[in-house]
């Protein structure tokens, strides 16, 4: 949220996040290399490169796994929202770790004088029909290409240039990248690896990603289908004190549109649950300095009319709310972006 595009919009929280992230990755890679060195002492330079290659490769795989777990974890437990806040930097760092893995692989071929054979690994077409012997490096390179595209378009400028639906679709390709990496590791293990640790890492990671997505999906489906509506179609939100102060309760209209109903003391207002920046879940955010603040990147909007405070120009769709016999209800029909629609509630009891 700035009138000037900067390379990186750092703040104190993001700096701490990035420092912890980089330290964690460095400790993992150094630890992996130390254990592998002790377990199978390298006999020559290719062996040394092989240790680092695996350290960076497994780090990238685990980082991608954590990235995919953060979204459902944040939906299941709001304490994980802190991890979601700066996930973009996590993704960019994952690309650099994966790129280093590829660089070490090229170096591994180079020090043995085998670099000229590397292109044939990708273009020996008959191997693509095999299961054992499949050119698994191609899968890894395809995953890296997706991660490169995501990292290169992670700046806010690209969101505006590509438009949110295209940008979002492009960045959902992280699931395709993960699938490719899983296949890359699985097929690579079958050809070269005989320790059970990496298969266990693969199965555990895949299981965690799948289970968390199913749990979060089930919870959201349950929430989307349990909302009562009044005779005139207004949706029941609940008594005012059922909405956390400075927080929101999310209700879902029949068309699937999620509405975030916020309370700031006695003021109650409803906005679309989608942030204008990257469609972040506004209803999982808080009211900070009088403004609804997106949990993903801190974009802010006034509760009264859904407008970003000046000099910013973003405006959100708002919804009418009413106080009806002690409970708050919301009209599921959206108002034009920036329309004032909040009310002051007479007795919140909070």
């Amino acid at each position: 949220m700035s009138v000037a595009f900067k390379a990186v919009q750092w703040n104190r929280d993001k700096l701490i996040y990035d420092a912890v992230l980089v330290a964690g990755v460095a400790i993992y890679i150094a630890g992996f290399a130390a254990v592998a060195w002790r377990w199978h002492p390298p006999k020559n330079l290719p062996d040394v490169l092989d240790i680092w290659l695996r350290a960076f490769g497994t780090a990238a795989f685990l980082m991608l796994t954590v990235i995919l777990c953060i979204g459902p974890l944040a939906r299941l437990d709001c304490r994980f929202l802190k991890l979601l806040y700066n996930r973009r930097h996590f993704g960019v760092l994952t690309f650099f770790v994966a790129a280093t893995h590829v660089g070490l692989m090229i170096e591994w071929f180079a020090v043995q004088g085998l670099l000229h054979t590397l292109p044939a690994d990708f273009t020996t077409w008959e191997n693509y029909g095999k299961f054992i012997g499949f050119p698994f490096k191609t899968l890894g390179v395809a995953a890296l290409a997706i991660m490169l595209t995501m990292a290169a378009t992670s700046h806010d400028f690209w969101l505006g240039f590509l438009k949110p639906p295209v940008w979002k679709a492009l960045h959902m390709a992280v699931y395709a990248a993960y699938g490719l990496v899983v296949m890359h590791v699985a097929l690579g293990i079958m050809q070269y690896e005989h320790t059970p640790l990496i298969p266990l890492m693969l199965i555990g990671s895949l299981g965690a990603v799948a289970t968390l997505h199913l749990m979060a999906g089930w919870r959201e489906w349950d929430a989307d289908h349990g909302r009562a509506a009044a005779a005139d179609g207004w949706l029941l939100v609940g008594p005012p004190n059922a909405i956390p102060d400075k927080g929101a309760r999310i209700v879902t209209a029949s068309g699937g549109e999620r509405i975030a109903v916020f309370r700031d003391g006695d003021q109650i207002g409803a906005l679309t649950n989608l942030c204008a920046h990257q469609n972040g879940p506004l209803g999982e955010g808080r009211i900070i300095d009088g403004c609804v603040t997106c949990p993903w990147h801190g974009y802010q909007y006034r509760l009264a009319d859904g407008c970003a405070p000046p000099p910013f120009i973003e405006r959100l769709v708002t919804y009418r709310v009413r106080w009806n016999q002690g409970v708050i209800e919301v009209d599921p029909h959206p108002l034009p972006p920036g329309t004032p629609a909040s009310i002051t509630c007479p007795r919140t009891g909070a």
């Binding site: 009138v3 000037a4 595009f5 900067k6 990186v8 700046h155 400028f157």
Partner: peptide
């Protein structure tokens, strides 16, 4: 980005 400026690092 008519209403925005770009820093060199950006």
């Amino acid at each position: 980005a008519h209403h925005m400026t770009f820093t060199l690092p950006a």
